[in-house]
């Protein structure tokens, strides 16, 4: 900063050393960054501070008059609350069941699309793959309600075609959980497939061709030639699926509202129930802050792993 100022004396003569790109006055940098920073402070940080403040109170919307300061009591309750950890475990379980399926199926689809031939059919399939991931998450839940209805749902009709009896899908705790996994897989496998396909296209064609002359085993080529190029895509998939699983709300809320019982009560649904359906804002704020801390730790970890440049 100062060095740049010294080399350019008051009157900027034409002969002055060329201005260095990237080194600009602090005021210029601030002017460019200020709008975004101020906006994100206002909508992203101010509410958080408010949440931290509220989390220190026994604050329930049904009895606002009896609000009192309780210090870290809410946090003590959250951290020892079996319901909270059950919801966290359920969220983690969803991640470890749905994401491997998405990666396995996504990889198969990507490899299929990566092969030569059938250009037109492949282009159409790629377009079809775009549809699920752009679908409004809330609508996915509604689609689940309609197609998986025990009596009127087309899903049970299809099970009937292969000789399986009608199943109570969304009304049975265990089945409801697998229904969430199913629709998560439906919505996000195409995304994983397209990300991995983009990864596959980073393999230099000469390398792949040379390898194909050496071996006819697809597995060997995948393992030793393609996989190294797929690592960045796989890491990106893991990061984004982690973030989205922690945020998962819309689809489950419209599908099951967290039920039956609390079979599909993932972490975001639990916090919504605490704050919006039990009006316990103090507790919901404490739960939200704990979730935020977990999220930030994971995000730091991942970003360190992946976005090394910048």
């Amino acid at each position: 900063m100062t060095a740049a100022a010294e080399t350019v004396p008051g009157a900027a003569a034409p002969a002055a050393p060329p201005p260095v790109l990237g080194r600009v006055r602090r005021r210029t940098v601030a002017a460019f960054l200020a709008p975004a920073v101020i906006a994100l402070l206002a909508v992203g940080i101010v509410p958080l501070i408010y949440a931290v403040w509220r989390s220190l109170y026994d604050f329930n919307l049904t009895r606002v008059a009896r609000t009192r300061f309780v210090g870290l009591d809410n946090y003590a309750t959250v951290l020892t609350d079996p319901t909270f950890w059950a919801a966290m475990r359920r969220t983690a379980f969803l991640f470890v069941t749905a994401v491997p399926v998405q990666i396995a199926l996504g990889l198969l689809i990507a490899l299929l699309l990566h092969r030569p031939g059938l250009g037109m059919a492949k282009a159409l399939t790629r377009l079809a793959l775009v549809l699920p991931m752009a679908t409004t998450y809330a609508v996915v839940g509604l689609l689940a309600q309609v197609t998986m209805n025990q009596r009127y749902g087309v899903f049970n009709q299809m099970l009937g075609w292969v000789g399986l009896g009608p199943v109570n899908i969304l009304g049975n705790p265990q089945n409801a959980f697998w229904a969430v996994v199913f629709w998560d897989v439906w919505q996000w496998t195409p995304f994983v497939a397209l990300v991995l396909l983009a990864g596959l296209s980073t393999v230099p064609p000469e390398v792949e061709e040379a390898a194909r002359l050496e071996t006819r085993s697809h597995w060997t080529i995948l393992r030793h030639v393609q996989l190294p190029f797929l690592i960045p895509s796989l890491v990106a998939v893991l990061i984004l699926r982690t973030a989205d699983t922690l945020k998962l709300f819309d689809m489950v809320f419209t599908m099951t509202r967290g039920g039956p019982g609390n079979a599909t009560e993932f972490i975001a649904i639990l916090i919504e129930r605490t704050g919006n359906r039990q009006f316990n804002i103090g507790m919901a704020s404490a739960q939200a802050i704990v979730l935020l801390v977990i999220t930030i730790v994971l995000a730091r970890l991942y970003v360190r792993l992946f976005y090394r440049e910048t």
């Binding site: 709300f249 975001a268 919504e272 979730l291 935020l292 995000a299």
Partner: peptide, 14 residues
């Protein structure tokens, strides 16, 4: 970048 990770439910009540 972290904003992409933060669940809206964290901000909704405040």
């Amino acid at each position: 970048i972290t904003n992409r990770f933060v669940s809206p439910v964290v901000l909704a009540f405040p």
